[in-house]
Design a binder for these strands. Sequence first.
RNA 1: GGUUGUGUAGCUCAAUUGGAUAGAGCAUCUGACUACGAAUCAGAAGGUUUAAGGUUCGACUCCUUACACGACCA
Length: 628
Amino acid sequence: MDPAAACATFAHPFPAGQSGFGGASLYIPHPVQELEQDIKTALSAAIQQVFGAEVPAAQLTIQPTRKEFAGSFTLVTFPLTKALGKGPEQIGQALGEWLTANEPKVSGYNVVKGFLNLEIADAEWLRRFAQLVQRPDGAPMPTGGPQDVVVEYSSPNTNKPLHLGHLRNNFLGYSVAEILKATGATVTKANLVNDRGIHICKSMLAYQHYGHGETPQSAGIKGDHLAGKYYVLFEKHYREQVRQLEAEGVAPEIAKKQAPLMLEAQTMLQQWEQGDDAVITLWKQMNGWVYEGFDETYKTIGVDFDKFYYESGTYLLGKERVEEGLQKGVFFRKEDGSVWVDLKEEGLDEKLLLRADGTSVYITQDLGTAELKYQDFGYDLSVYVIADEQNYHMQVLKAVLKKLGKPYADAIYHLSYGMVDLPSGKMKSREGTVVDADELVREVVEAAKTATLEKGKIEGLSDDEQAQLFHTLGLGALKYYLLKVDPKKRMLFNPEESVQLEGHTGPFIQYSHARIAQLRRKAQQMGIAETADFSTLLALEKTEREMVEELARYGSVVAEAARSFSPAVVAQYAYDLAKAYNRFYAEVPVLQEADETRRAFRVALSAQTARAIKASMSLLGIEVPERM
RNA sequence: GGUUGUGUAGCUCAAUUGGAUAGAGCAUCUGACUACGAAUCAGAAGGUUUAAGGUUCGACUCCUUACACGACCA
C-alpha cells in the first residue's frame, strides 16, 4: 500500500500543534487560552533563567491540575530531564521557586514526583473572569482550522420516514456544524436527498397497485409515513410472490429476481431514467408528500439546512466524471462495457463505477455531488456525516477523486459514527424493530410532560408556554442522550434511560439553568447588579475558584470539540459545568451572603454560568428554559 | 477468507490524546429541604481497563499475538 495515499486518507483537517493563534486576527482570544499561553511563556523564561537552556514555549505541555492537588496548571517535568540534566523533582522545585518569585500570576506551587502544580493568583482569576463576562456572545474561538466548510448530514431516502438512526445523524450533523461555526468558520449545512433508485420505485409501484389514489390528506397520514407504508406493502407482496415461486420449485435466487413485482420495479426504474411522463408525475407527487413530512420532522427536532442536493440532479454529473476518468486513463472499461477503477495500490480493490447497461451506482452519484458541492462552495473542508457501515465506500470515494486529480479530494472528511442498537439488539426493518423518529419524539415529550406536571413548579405558564416547555425538555433529554456518546462508537439506546431527567442528562443541565434564572430574577428584585468591580475581593473560596476555572475552560473545549468533530466533548463540558455549579450553589449562600461585594460576585458567577450553559447547549442544538 | 472498528465498575458512558491514586450517571445503601428551586447536594460500596507478552521514567492509550462482538469487501 502506498504510504502517501494511506496518509492522505487519514489526514486531519486541523493543524496538529494547535497553538490557536496562527495569524487569525479576527479571533478574540479566550481568556484561559491566553492565560495558558502566558504560563507557558513564563515557564520557558524560567527554564532559560534557571538552567540556561532554550526550550520554546510551544514545546511545553501543560495540563489542568487534577482536583486532588492544589493548583490550576500542571507541568509534567519528566520530558525535561534529558535536556536539563536534572531530576524531575529538582526541575519542578527550581521552576516553581523562580515563577513564584518572578511571575505575579503564579502565587504558589507544589511538586509531586515529576509534576509541578502551579497555583494562579486570585487577582488573576478575577481579572480573567471580568474578561469572560465582557466577551461578546458568539465571539469565535481560535483553532487555526478550516474557514469554509460544508457539513452534509441527514441525507434521507424518500421511501421511508426517519428513524432513530437518522436522529443520531441529524443531531450530530447539526451540532458539528454549530461547533465549527463557533470556531469562526463559515459553515453550509447540506442535505443530499436520495430521491431516485430502485427502492423509490418500489414504493411508487406499490402505490400504483394498492393506493387507490390515497393522499396524506385523505388518509390523515404524514407524507413520509404514507410512502413508507407502500414500501412495506411492496416488500410484503414481493415476498409472497417469491414464496409462491419457490413453492413451485423455482430456486430461491431465481425467484428473487423473477418475481413479477421486482421485474415491474426494474421496468419502472428504466422508465424513470427515460423520463416517462406518468412515472415522473407519480414520482414528483410522492416525493412532494415525503418532503412535506420531512420538513415537519426537521422543524420538530430543530435541525435546518442551507442547501439541498438531490441525487436525481447529480447522477448525470457523476456519469460525466466517469467519462472524464476514462479519458484521463485512470478508469478502465471491461469487455461487457462496465467501467471500473483499480484501487489496489491504495490498499483497496477494483471498484465498479458504471454498470454494463450504463446505469449508475451509488458512487457514480457521489462523484457528481462532490463536484457540484465544490463548484457551489469551494470549501476547504467537506464533512460527510455518514454511519460507519460506509467507511469503505467513503475511502473509495476519496481515492477515486484523488485519481481524478480533484483538488477537493483531500478536503473530504468522513465523520463516521456508530450505529444505534436497542436493548433487544440491532434495529431491523425486516423484524419491525425500527424505532420511528416522529413517534419517539412524541413519547419523550409526553414523558417530560408527565414528569414536569408531577413536580408542579410551573404555575403561571400559559398552555402554549407549557407545551413549548415539554417539547424543550423532551427533546433536550433525547438529544443529550444521543450526543453524549463519542460519535465513532456504536451506542445502545435504552428507551427508559433516554427520557430520564436525573443524573447525567440534558434535563439535569436544563434544570441548573432554570434554577439560576430564578436566582437572577430574585437578585434583580433585590437590586443586586450583575456586573461590578470585584477587585476588592481579596481571596476566592475554593468552590468559587473552581467555578471560575470551569467557566474559563469553555474556549478550549469548543476548540477541542471542533478538532475532534465530537459534540460529546461539549456535552461532557455542559454537564461538568452544571455539576460544579450545583455544588457551588449547595455550599455557599448567594443572595443571603452578607458581604455586598461577594454577593454581587456570586450573582455574576451564576449569571456567567447560565450563559455558558446556554451557549454550550445551543452548540448541541438544545434549548434551555427559564423555569421548569 | 481479506480489510476495519470496538472491548473500561452489575448496566450506560468518561479519562485533557503517553502522565499522578482510572472518573461520572443509573441501580444499591446512608445522610441533608422553616437559607436563595431536592429534576439538587454530601457520603458509602463497586475495577487484574478481554488475555498474554513487548516498548519506557510512566501504558486504558503505542506495538505483537490470541479471544469476543460488530461493520464492510467478495
